[in-house]
């Protein structure tokens, strides 16, 4: 027990001393961890927002709203609904009245309700929202419903094939670019941290030499450096976590007011995941960097 305590005590106290003794090198390492984690955290949040938008567009995409002419009686609309439901390609059809359409419209984020009130009458049509099993059938259904006299003419549906394809492509490109960026940043940061810590260790090679000479085991030599790497990782991560944690909500709110029709939302649960990942990644960067940095000196 006392051996374990001695080991822990030695690792922590010498890591703490060395962290401050080579303050310049330590701060350089902390800055690198900080920048990498800040980039990583922001990137994860941006990718997540893109993901959310794509997911929303995809659910929207598997459904089209068929706008009904204001002259269509409710009974005819219900017959048309039954007719569409009997189509094997269709999974569900729901009726949205003019009032419901207005209520939905009011819920759009960052849209000022008073602007809508100045319109006086409700310009929105009632609609049948048709959900299909396979997105590829949407075109055919769109063509079919346009023939019905019950359907409004301006426009008949909200089917926009090009937009959907573009969004999916954009999301895929952004995802791959993000992944490449994350892998690149990780590799680069491990390398830089390894070099920084190796510089710090080089300044203390005499200490390592003496430790080995008097019979310290490899792990006993290694632990203080790994703990020091963990310090670097924690400090860098905490600063980055604070910035991302407190910056995410204002950023989303600001973007929502600029990009009115982009369905951005604040995801508290995902934010926690990202912050935890940043902290974990910071610890990993620091300890792996130290482990690699000290390896050369132990091998001699």
């Amino acid at each position: 027990m006392h051996r374990l305590w001695n080991r822990v005590d030695f690792a922590f106290s010498s890591a703490w001393q060395n962290f401050w003794r080579n303050a310049a090198v330590s701060i350089a390492s902390v800055l690198i961890v900080w920048v990498v984690l800040l980039a990583l955290g922001s990137l994860l949040l941006v990718l997540h927002s893109l993901d959310q938008i794509v997911a929303l567009e995809k659910t929207k995409a598997s459904a089209i709203s068929v706008y009904l002419a204001d002259t269509t009686p409710l009974s005819s609309a219900m017959d048309f609904k039954l007719h569409l439901e009997s189509d094997p390609r269709v999974t569900a059809v729901s009726y949205v009245s003019k009032d419901q359409a207005m209520a939905r419209f009011r819920q759009l984020p960052a849209l000022d309700p008073s602007v809508i009130d100045t319109l006086g009458t409700n310009p929105l049509p009632a609609s049948l929202d048709v959900t299909v099993k396979d997105i590829r059938d949407l075109g055919a259904i769109d063509q079919a419903v346009r023939l019905s006299p019950l359907v409004d003419r301006s426009p008949a549906t909200n089917y926009e094939p090009n937009v959907i394809d573009k969004i999916i492509l954009l999301a895929r490109v952004a995802g791959i670019a993000g992944l490449v960026l994350i892998i690149g940043l990780t590799g680069l940061s491990v390398f830089i941290i390894m070099l920084t810590i190796r510089t710090a260790i080089y300044l203390r090679r005499k200490e390592i030499e003496v430790m080995k000479l008097v019979g310290a085991t490899d792990w006993f030599v290694r632990w203080p450096f790994i703990v020091e790497g963990l310090f670097v990782g924690v400090v860098g991560a905490v600063v980055a976590v604070l910035i991302v944690g407190f910056g995410y909500h204002p950023a989303v709110v600001n973007l929502q007011s600029v990009l009115i029709f982009v369905p951005l939302s604040f995801d508290q649960y995902y934010l926690r995941l990202v912050l935890a990942a940043m902290l974990g990644f910071g610890l990993l960067l620091g300890s792996v960097g130290s482990y690699l940095g000290v390896r050369r000196f132990l091998k001699q």
Binding site: N6, V214, G215, F220, V221
Partner: peptide, 12 residues
């Protein structure tokens, strides 16, 4: 003391 500590001798 360093030599004793790094070989995990009892602190007391």
């Amino acid at each position: 003391a360093f030599a004793l500590r790094v070989t995990e001798g009892a602190l007391r």
